[in-house]
Design a protein around this nucleic acid. Structure first.
Length: 471
RNA sequence: CGGGCUGUAGCGCAGCUUGGUUAGCGCGCCACGUUCGGGACGUGGAGGUCGGCGGUUCAAAUCCGCCCAGCCCGACCA
């Protein structure tokens, strides 16, 4: 029987393919209000694992969790000029409550710098109170004009960290530590998505920040996605919220701040970076189900043997599911697990058992290998490790193949049609970024030519810009 | 807001130009049977304010007017 095509082909229509995967892998659905999203149980199980890894690393950086209100008085947003200018167009504003018009409208938080500063200014008195570090897991609302499931939804789940420090250098160090030790590491090691790190241009900077740092990844279609950001806020918010402390000399000073966030957008990145024509492909470290033991036919005691094998693998510390729904056709079940991206499938039926074997199938490359039952546990473990590495290597190779070094704005525009372009800042010039924007290309980040992060003393002319089309 | 377009069953669509039995197809769903080692098939069945309002007409999914909603491209964006 021919293998059926269950998804829209990527080559034909990448956006349609993306929607298809989200639906058929049971990750997410559209909400009733434009741009909102329902995350289905399977999608949420994946999100919870991302969340747990981020949370552990944030706590390891010394940042405890806290929670601040969903509603922010509109006047708070207005205090920081650049901030309100950046966010005004996408605010959801509540004008009525309890059946009456509110005296002051409240805004549904688009991000929490303002309300957290209102509290930091109360809590911080002395240099002994610094650094003040908090993280919150929350939903935020930004009324985006062109929503897209996971990648740009009106409401999204994220963590936002907010810190206050005594010096600019300390704030900067903290912002970069989060970028590299929390975001970059989770993306590379857990999600198996290679990222470029760098600084945003003034044009692309977070509203209210002095410097924005970013992690950018390339999706399968060559477009860029910002996967996490870390901002140096300078004293911008401290000044308008009067967040001050007395230093050890008794002088009153404004704090230096950072904020940083990563969101459910990472779920979209996962699909767009690793998905193929058969659906999602999950990196084993991330997968809620790492191994599915598929019972082909129940005859000759195969059912009991399959259950025992699943138990054995579970005993080895793996996340294992047993699929013994033999009333559903084998082909249908296999396609379901492929769509969901489960990294390793172990097929067990009377035929295999008669030979003392099971068939080990890898989702990432489709290879099928007969494995003696006695070796199964070790071979499955090895396959999972190999798949994790292979997905990262594949994504890295694709990015490298899709990246072009160019020498002019025109070449950068051309190369950005299908991938990333690396352009010397000297060649970008003052007008180059605006020109690129006109043709749908943006500067994703600025870095040193070797890819490392710029330092404060670096001459911009010595740096390079990475340009691309972006989600 | 500018430029294109679409609203017909849960989803995807045909029918509209040229008005005319009971509005149709694929997928999905339900029942039964045969199947079931890579998304099986047969038979039967459920499911519709044809986006809304008004008009023309003996007769409107189809023609006309107004309204509403959504999609794609652009500005925005974790």
């Amino acid at each position: 029987m021919a293998r059926p095509s269950v998804l829209a082909s990527q080559a034909d229509d990448f956006p349609q393919w993306y929607q298809d995967v989200l639906a058929k892998s049971e990750l997410a659905d559209n909400g009733p209000v434009r741009g909102t999203m329902v995350i289905r149980p399977y999608g949420y199980a994946i999100w919870e694992r991302i969340q747990a890894e981020l949370d552990a690393r944030i706590k390891a950086a010394g940042v405890p969790n806290a929670y601040f209100p969903l509603f922010i008085p509109e006047s708070y947003l207005r205090k920081e000029a650049a901030h309100v200018e950046g966010f005004s167009p996408e605010l959801a504003v509540v004008t009525h409550g309890g059946g009456k018009r509110l005296e002051e409208p409240v805004v549904v938080r688009p991000t929490s710098e303002t309300i957290i500063n209102a509290y930091f200014s109360k809590w911080i008195q002395s240099y002994r109170d610094l650094p003040m570090l908090v993280n919150q897991w929350a939903n935020v609302v930004r009324w985006e004009l062109r929503p897209r499931l996971f990648l740009r939804t009106t409401e999204f789940l994220w963590q936002e960290g907010h810190t206050a420090h005594a010096t600019e250098a300390e704030a900067r160090r903290f912002a970069l530590d989060i970028l590299e030790q929390v975001y970059e590491e989770v993306m590379v090691e857990l999600l198996a998505i290679p990222v470029l790190t760098g600084r945003k241009t003034e044009r692309e900077r977070f509203s209210g920040a002095t410097t924005t740092w970013t992690c950018e990844a390339m999706m399968r279609d060559g477009k860029a996605l910002q996967m996490g950001t870390s901002h140096e806020l300078g004293q911008n918010f401290a000044r308008v919220f009067d967040t001050t402390f007395l230093d050890e000399h008794g002088d009153l000073q404004h704090v230096w701040q950072t904020s940083w966030g990563a969101s459910t957008r990472l779920m979209g990145a996962l699909v767009m970076a690793h998905g193929d024509d058969a659906g999602l492909r999950l990196p084993p470290r991330l997968a809620p189900v790492q191994v599915v033991v598929v019972l082909v036919r129940a005859e000759e005691g195969a059912g009991d043997r399959a259950a025992a094998l699943a138990a054995e693998l579970r005993g080895a510390g793996l996340r294992v599911e047993l699929d013994d729904r033999t009333e559903t056709s084998f082909g249908r079940r296999v396609v379901d697990w492929e769509l969901k991206g489960v990294p390793v499938r172990v097929e067990v039926g009377p035929r295999e058992l008669a030979g003392g074997q099971a068939v080990l199938v890898r989702r990432d490359d489709g290879t099928k290998t007969p494995v003696p039952l006695a070796e199964l546990e070790g071979r499955v473990g090895a396959a999972l490790d190999a798949a994790q590495g292979a997905l990262l290597a594949e994504a890295r190779a694709r990015r490298e193949a899709g990246t072009t070094e160019v020498g002019s704005v025109a070449e950068a525009e051309e190369a950005s049609r299908s991938g990333f372009a690396v352009l010397p800042m000297a060649a970008l010039g003052p007008e180059g970024e605006a020109d690129l924007n006109l043709s749908g290309v943006s500067v994703r980040l600025v870095a040193r030519p070797d890819g490392s992060l710029p330092e404060p003393g670096d001459d911009d002319a010595e740096l390079v810009a990475v340009t691309a089309r972006a989600y």
